[in-house]
Computed example of a mutant assay.
Amino acid sequence: MSPRQAGADHLEAIGRRLRALREGAELEGKDLAARLGWSASKVSRLELARQGISPADIAAWVAATQGTPDERAQLLGLLDQAREEEHTLRRRARHGQAAIQAGYNTLIERASLIRLFQTAVVPGLLQTPEYARVILTAAQRQLQLSVEDIDAAVATRMERQKYLYSGRRFELLIAEPVLRWGIVPPAVMRDQIDRLHGAIGLANVRLGILPLGAPLELVPLHTFAMYDDLVCVETFGREHRYTGSEAETYAAAFDTLWSSAATGHEARRLLVRLADALSGATNQPEQAPVRH
């Protein structure tokens, strides 16, 4: 069985609603096709989700069947969801990670205020090349990407760091477990922590660490990024984007989490403790195997 197209569920739902509108108007497929100036086969393919549909197609169908504005809005909403799924999954599978990284670079280039909350990895804006390589290699396997472009992806992610010196404002909040996950070797993480030390001194960067054990007013459910008023939430399989009132919810959550963050000298002390712990792990002599 061939894999289902990304967004297929939403496209099939659109097809069912289109058919319901046609039948509600008591029209045969050929009659609706004549009204719209389409072929009868196009009407059939759209109802069966076997052909791509455009917003103009939806508007014409609703008008020809005397559908309501609410029905049109619901159909367009389903189309938006189908396109979101198709765009994200196909982008990752077909274009590789360098293209994904370039897209995030563009988001930063177009924004004046960048806010990131990370519960998984160090933000790409502050990653060392070695750290980035480990993370992107893991993503290559995890997402089963068909394009192997780790070198290009690392280089593109490193290009992003030029924006730290461009006059844009950055507010970067990292949960302490990010610096404790065993995703990268201790030596790589120790160098990464040194990189974070340097970022604390940048005038346009506000760096905070959310310490383990700190009292919190809300649950830090997941990572998210804000580019001015655009919110991006990346999951295992896709990325979701929000604006308007939904984005305002994330902005409020960010401010609430920030109130519990360690910053400045307190953040530096926390980084020193973490680096010392990693140094001990790196210098730990290899234990001889137990023989029975």
Rank of each mutant, 00 (worst) to 15 (best):
S279M: 09
T282A: 14
M226W: 00
V272K: 11
A225N: 11
E239Q: 12
V290A: 13
D228R: 04
R206I: 01
C232D: 13
Y250C: 02
R273S: 14
V290E: 10
D255K: 09
T223M: 12
E239R: 09
G237L: 10
A267N: 08
V205G: 05
A253R: 15
A253W: 12
E234P: 05
A247V: 04
G280S: 12
T223V: 10
L274T: 11
A225L: 11
T263F: 09
E239W: 04
A261N: 07
E246H: 13
A252Y: 07
V272M: 07
L207R: 10
A214C: 02
L270A: 08
L212D: 10
T282C: 02
Y242M: 13
A277G: 15
C232W: 05
S260R: 01
L212T: 07
L271G: 06
E234H: 00
G213N: 03
R268P: 00
F236D: 10
L202D: 04
V233N: 08
H222N: 12
I209A: 01
S245A: 15
L230W: 07
A281N: 10
A251P: 05
R268Y: 01
H222W: 10
L270E: 05
G264M: 05
D228C: 01
N204C: 03
E266G: 09
D229G: 02
L218N: 02
G244R: 09
R206Y: 02
F224N: 06
E266S: 13
S279C: 03
T249K: 14
A247E: 06
G208N: 03
P211A: 00
S245N: 09
C232Y: 08
P220V: 09
Y250F: 15
S260H: 03
P289I: 15
A261F: 06
L271S: 08
S260F: 00
G244W: 10
A281R: 15
R268N: 09
P289C: 12
A225V: 09
M226Y: 02
E217D: 13
H222Y: 14
P215H: 04
C232H: 13
A261V: 09
G213W: 01
A253N: 13
S259D: 11
N204G: 04
T243A: 11
L274S: 08
E266T: 14
G213T: 02
A262T: 03
S259A: 14
